[in-house]
Amino acid sequence: MTRGRVPWPLVIPAALGLAFLVLPPAGLVLRAPWSTLGARLAEPQVLAALRLSLVTATLATGLCLLLGVPLAWALARGGFRGRNLVRALVTVPLVLPPVVGGVALLTVLGRNGIVGRWLEAAFGVTLPFSTAGVVLAEAFVAMPFLVISVEGALRGVDPRYEEAAATLGASRWTIFRRVTLPMVAPGVAAGAILCWARALGEFGATITFAGNFPGRTQTMPLAVYLALETDPQAAIVLSLVLLAVCTAILALLRDRWVSGP
């Protein structure tokens, strides 16, 4: 079959699909109030939301790396029973509506939550409606992306490299640190970027668990939603900023990890 000759029952839906995906962001660019863009971007509320978004997404990614890489390692290398069940549990936040995730977080880490009550009594720590709560909500939603990506990378590493390291005298921890981890570094980086992008766009779990307090828990997506009700132009500007950030991430990823065959 000649390459490029696609039957028309496929061409039309394909073209529609492409338009459907490309037009809305394009509309965002077209309708942006370019003349006042500079002034609007410099508004302290926008800057505060942007800063909060970048900081919390980065912290959430850090938390995901800290917990998710060992979890991925256990899933890929651990010989324990019920591994498939654990893997299924890990992916739950992926399919769960984020709002439900937020409610779930409240029931556990909220002031009257199972763990939250104890945290407050023992340490005086309250997580809901705080910046830390934003980080937790984002990490909850974004971690499966990291775990799945890193586990895939770990499965791609020939375990005999780890055996070779063991015969050279390396302990399991040294093997992980100096052999396994460097070999899956591209997978970890790809996973971290996906995770970060997901955390940056997080809305449902964040607003449910952390609320919408400017400067403290109001991230960019929350600011966009709020602005839409009062000042649609501002919502477009904020959306444009998120679009720019995400496009930059995609460009960063494309060169190294997402390029097709």
């Binding site: 005999r160 070779a164 390291a165 063991a166 015969t167 050279l168 005298g169 460097p182 070999m183």
Partner: peptide, 21 residues
Amino acid sequence: LAVERRPVGVVFQDYLLFPHM
């Protein structure tokens, strides 16, 4: 003794040199 404590050196069939080093 665990693998890493044996006074043993191994040359593997396809060498298994660490690619990142």
